[in-house]
Design a protein around this nucleic acid. Structure first.
Lengths: 190, 190
DNA sequence: GTTTGCGTTCGAGCGCGCTCGAAGGCATAG
DNA sequence: CTATGCCTTCGAGCGCGCTCGAACGCAAAC
């Protein structure tokens, strides 16, 4: 996934250390979350905070998404503003917004307050994209759940009559009966 | 979208012709959906059915995901089995399963009925991946919705004191107050 | 006949978002 | 003093999933 690398890693991280790690970024949500930030942070600090690599942080900077000051040694110094922006950017990336759009958004921010309406447009569009994606995933989820269910515990009603190994693979699991289930895609909470 | 190209196109398609087109694949869900398929289809037929390009269909075949017969002219002839498999594959791709996993799954199917347990493992894992992704997106959605809300109608409580255009961009919208909202991420239906 | 249209194979190319590695600077530890 | 470690810049490379184009075949339309 192009747009997906970050997400992919986040999802994989989930497997690593419990069901909370991919939500790392969301933990820094409240005023508290951003208030208890140190005044400045090193690249390693920020990388740890956002659960992305220093390489990626430098990449974002090169891409023009943030400006980061340097200390006497030429090392990056992330102030609260830069960190806040990176929190936002990472959230957007995680929810699938492409770099291109992020660059656009950032250019609007840097252009001044008069771009607020256009910024809102961007956000609203992204919100709708997320909603569509959730709906899409919910439908797929229902289909996959159905398929799992009809597989039985082991060998189910699939692998039916026409013997196994039959070339093109009618050995394949059922793709058919989904009508009622899909007609009621409210199953998400299951 | 590495993993994302298909999804991206699906999402873009949504914009094109109403809120239903990305769900094209889900329309062919029920037994009816698959029953009313012609006995055989051309590549253009299948491409239209699945809303993917003939190029992509050939690519899937080259990748070893389906076998497709040829007619006297060397043209592809998709039988019902191939189409069913492609419906499944497309669904999985749309929900983010990487080609790699799809190849693995298909190899299991082609290996015979004794691989059903392992196939189930794959499906269950993918189900969990989808669920995590939905949760992740739901959190992001809440954050974006909050941000939109606090932007006010135009210039909101953001773009506050410290004048606009101030370099690093405290001009940026609020990333702070999300605590209560995020603590109750049940807001998905809003 | 030629043209149009739809198909074929094959290998190369692309866009995305990282990801890496080389070559070096500076500072603290031993 | 020499490590060790963390940082720097820069450009190149990678993995993914398409996507494209060239060169060609066959068949129905005109």
């Amino acid at each position: 996934m192009a747009t997906d690398d970050l997400m992919t890693r986040a999802l994989e991280a989930l497997g690593d250390d419990g069901p909370l790690s991919a939500e790392a970024i969301h933990r820094l949500a409240g005023p508290a979350g951003l208030a208890d930030l140190p005044a400045t942070m090193t690249i390693a600090d920020v990388a740890g905070l956002l659960d992305i690599s220093p390489h990626t942080l430098r990449y974002y900077e090169r891409a023009g998404l943030v400006e980061v000051a340097r200390d006497g040694n030429g090392h990056r110094v992330y102030d609260a503003g830069a960190v806040r922006r990176l929190v936002f950017l990472t959230r957007m990336r995680l929810s699938g917004m492409p770099m291109r759009d992020l660059r656009h958004y950032v250019s609007l921010v840097d252009a001044g307050g008069h771009t607020v309406p256009e910024r809102l447009d961007v956000l609203v569009e992204h919100r709708d994209t997320i909603r569509r994606r959730i709906r899409e995933l919910t439908l797929s989820l229902t289909a996959v759940e159905y398929k799992i269910a009809t597989y039985g515990g082991s060998t189910g009603p699939d692998v039916p009559a026409g013997g196994p190994l039959t070339g093109t693979g009618r050995t394949a699991p059922p793709d058919e009966p989904l009508r009622r289930t899909l007609a009621t895609p409210t199953t998400m909470t299951r």
